[in-house]
């Protein structure tokens, strides 16, 4: 009865037709303009039963068997009205979206409101890639249903049209519709957790002097580690010893961290993942941090709002 919704089954031509028929909107009320009705498999079996009964009535010349067949047939017809009535007037609105990371379920809150009066039963909603959920509109006039869709890649997750369906009351007919609530959930890159670098080099006018020598002059040499600035490599010694050495300078270590896409090695997605991890960790440690993505810069800050802003930029990096 309730097969999982086939994902991606809405072909583009059907999609275009749907867009004309049921235009996207923030709040959509179901009516005869946007609800479809068709018999279910059980409905067709029921139809077969009626045909068998009519054959029996003809062969046994029994008026009352005719009567049973006609009554069942009419019930199926009236069932169309009942099934449609169960959806009619219900309005759907997207009231909240919860962001998440790649691989997580992204939550969407859809609020269903029915007109006053008779309760509605057995309404299910769900996205093609998600799980169908029941909406309880029988005793209450409104219900908010949270649905999850798996975030597979970073950026905007647009789950597309939402399936609203009901088999009530007979299960022989299915009334359904696809509504587009313009749902879009933000999917952040999957975090890759690394240690926050002990010191990040900042500009002279910022931060706090921690070097006792009080100069940013050269102090000593150390072997190159990934992450060290290429500018400080001593190429002359490399020519001699096959070992990359970098000069170390005493500097200002600032408590405010700067996470810079350029300073992180790896592919773009991996670097974004590391930055995500760093941002999460810094927030948990309540360290101020800023973010530099190519030309874009987010001033250092701390707290959930700041984190959200950072994650948003990371999620949408490189997307139009």
């Amino acid at each position: 009865m309730s097969e999982a919704i086939d994902s991606g089954q809405i072909s583009s031509r059907f999609g275009q037709w749907l867009d004309r028929r049921i235009p996207p909107g923030k709040r959509i009320t179901l009516s005869q303009h946007n609800v479809f009705i068709f018999p279910t498999r059980m409905g067709f079996v029921f139809g077969g039963l009626i045909v068998v009964l009519i054959l029996g009535a003809i062969n046994y010349q029994s008026s009352l068997v005719y009567g049973v067949a006609f009554l069942l047939g009419t019930m199926l017809l009236i069932g169309i009205l009942y099934t449609f009535r169960n959806l009619s007037g219900v309005s759907l609105e997207l009231v909240g979206t919860r962001a998440g990371f790649v691989g997580e379920d992204i939550g969407f809150d859809v609020r269903l409101v029915r007109p006053q009066g008779r309760g509605r039963e057995g309404i299910q909603i769900g996205w093609p890639d998600g799980i169908k959920q029941w909406a309880e509109l029988c005793d209450q006039e409104a219900d908010t249903v949270r649905m999850y869709v798996k975030g597979t890649r970073r950026g905007w997750l647009r789950p597309g049209r939402l399936l609203v369906e009901t088999y009530y009351p007979l299960g022989l007919l299915r009334a359904w519709t696809w509504v587009d609530l313009n749902a879009a959930g933000l999917v952040y890159p999957k975090p890759i957790f690394t240690d926050i670098p002990a010191g990040t080099y900042g500009r002279r006018d910022e931060g706090e002097l921690i070097d006792p020598l009080g100069s940013d002059d050269f102090t000593d040499l150390k072997t190159y580690l990934p992450g060290d600035s290429v500018k400080h490599i001593i190429w002359r010694s490399y020519a001699r010893s096959d070992e990359l050495m970098v000069k170390r300078y005493a500097s200002f270590v600032e408590p405010r961290l700067w996470f810079d896409l350029d300073q992180i090695p790896g592919g773009v997605e991996e670097r974004l993942g590391r930055l995500t991890g760093l941002a999460l960790r810094a927030t948990r440690l309540e360290r101020e941090f800023g973010l530099r993505l190519d030309g874009m810069e987010i001033a250092p800050g701390v707290g959930d709002a700041h984190l959200e802003q950072v994650l948003r930029e990371l999620a949408l990096y490189g997307m139009a």
Binding site: M75, E121, G122, W134, E136, C138, Y167, Y168, P169, L170, G171, L172
Partner: peptide, 10 residues
């Protein structure tokens, strides 16, 4: 018929 209705309720 009521039994059938019951099957489609929550």
């Amino acid at each position: 018929t009521a039994a059938m209705v019951g099957m489609n309720q929550f």
